[in-house]
Each structure stands twice: as structure tokens, then as C-alpha cells.
Design a binder for these strands. Sequence first.
DNA 1: GATTATAATAAGAACCATTCTAATTTCCCG
DNA 2: CGGGAAATTAGAATGGTTCTTATTATAATC
Lengths: 146, 146
Amino acid sequence: MKADATSTHESGMPEEINGLRMTRQRQEVYRFLMGERTHPTANEVFMRIKETLPNVSLATVYNCLEALVQHKIVRQVNFDREPSRYCPNLDEHGHFHDETTGKIHDVKFKPGIHLADVLDLPPNTVINDIEITLRGQLACASDFSR
Amino acid sequence: MKADATSTHESGMPEEINGLRMTRQRQEVYRFLMGERTHPTANEVFMRIKETLPNVSLATVYNCLEALVQHKIVRQVNFDREPSRYCPNLDEHGHFHDETTGKIHDVKFKPGIHLADVLDLPPNTVINDIEITLRGQLACASDFSR
DNA sequence: GATTATAATAAGAACCATTCTAATTTCCCG
DNA sequence: CGGGAAATTAGAATGGTTCTTATTATAATC
């Protein structure tokens, strides 16, 4: 029932991103996502930022994530009907779920390729969002190192 | 608690598909999906086959759908976290969700293109499943007619 | 700087697609 | 036909997410 005395702007984060006011909670969610590359779920974000903001609520984490997604600051990634995951990589890319390790990796297109170019869509189709997800096994030595 | 006297094989359906015994319920689910191209949800399948099998249960519809999916007879299609939809088209293809009409359309690749070929994956990666979903608006006159 | 309006947050209840459980029925195979 | 395995049913349970309501923080205005 009682929110923190969340003095909002002590960190080096801008007051707004893409028109979204960066409250303390949104900052923490965003900062965590930027540092993580494991595509965490809402609950994982929640557990992690509770260390910094002990009174944060799960609902707020969902609210923050939704706001970040709607302002195109992070992307929401879904594998089948598993819990949604969140990704700060805004480049056009897909996601590979390694069934051996459980890890999720970003997958880029080969140079010069854009998905819309290889799909057989009617002319003038407007594409607002694309999601590409793969499941499989990575060869042992592979690590997607860049 | 009481199941129908479901005499199984009066129709022209094979007794097995891909090693899956085609019970009456599975037949009805499969037949409906083959006739529909609207990518129905489990509940839509349920409501429809209840007309033929009044005692069918929703759990059975889920069981049937899962069995059909696992035997690669139909595909499960997910848009974000909306209810799963089911698709009898087994060709490699994606799905376009038209936000204007709410309809879902199959999307083919341009001739000769395979998704795995345009992705930048480590060598020897095993891909078990690919899902491509798009959201957007179809130009007015377009209808994906083939 | 104080006041009011608007937006964001917190806590927990509610939602709903899906899965699970237990009992019953059907199918398969001798 | 009989026994065991598989499938079905109905309803309860699950769990990620959303909703509701009250409270708190921020922005706008005086």
C-alpha cells in the first residue's frame, strides 16, 4: 500500500525514452534488461529488481514491461505459450531456443537479407511486427560468439 | 462421466495417420481443421464438433489437438500469448495476422527460399521447429488468393 | 511554494487458456 | 469373451497475466 520515496532521477538515465517517462521502476527494469542477454521473464525481472526496490510489485513490473514494449524500447518474445520474455535488442532478429541448454539466442539474418523480402506477401501489405522463433539443438562447440 | 458409444470407423478416414490411431474424436477434430482455413482455437474446435459429438469434452479436444500436433498431422500456431490456433497446412510457411479483419493467412516463402538458408546460424545447428508470425494490415483489395 | 490534476505504483483478487486428476469407457489382442 | 492399455470425460487445479482499488508520486497551475 505504501510506495517508496522514489526520487526518480539520480542516475545517468534520461528522463524520457521514446516519449516514455522513465520512472524509477521503469529505469530499473530497463537497466536490468540491458545488462542481461538471457531474455528474462517478467517474474525473473521482478525477483531481480526487488533487490534494489524491495517494495516493487509484480504488477508494476508487468506495467513497466508493457510500457517499454509499447514505446518500442524493448521487445516481447514469446515461445509457444511459455511465459513472455523480454529483449532489449531492437534490430530485426529472431530467437533460437536451444532445447539442450534451455538458453535463448538472438539470430541475425545473413547480410543484406530482410525477412519481408523473402516472403510471398501481397503488394502494399503493411507489416507492423515480425516474430521468428526456432527450436533445436546447437552443435556442441557453437556459442553464437560474435 | 459417460462416454459416447463411439463406433469409430464408419467414415472414409484411415484408421491411423502417422502412427496415430484415429479415434472418432480425433477424426472429427482433424476433419474440421482440414475443412477450415481460419486457424481455429481449441475452443472453436470444441464448439463446432460438439454439434456432431454432443458429449465431447474440451479436455478431449485439447488431447486430440496435442496428439495431432505431436504426430505432425497439424501445426500449432501461436500469436503472442493469445489462445493457440491450429493449422492443417504442413508446408513450411508463416502466418500473417491481419489486424484490420482479424483474419489469419498462411504466408509462403518466395520460390526457392528456405528460412534456414537466410538465417545466420552456427554450423551444424539442428532446427526442430520454426515459427514465423507477422502482424499488420493487408492492402484493401488483397486477398491472398492463390 | 502550495494546490490540484494526472499518471504511476502496490497489493491482491480475478481471469482464462490450458493441464491435471480420477473415474469411466473403448479398443486391442489373445 | 476377458484383461490390460489407451482414450475420453467432467471438473478441479494451475499459473501467467490482467484487473481493481487505494495510495503515492509527478506535472501543471496558481
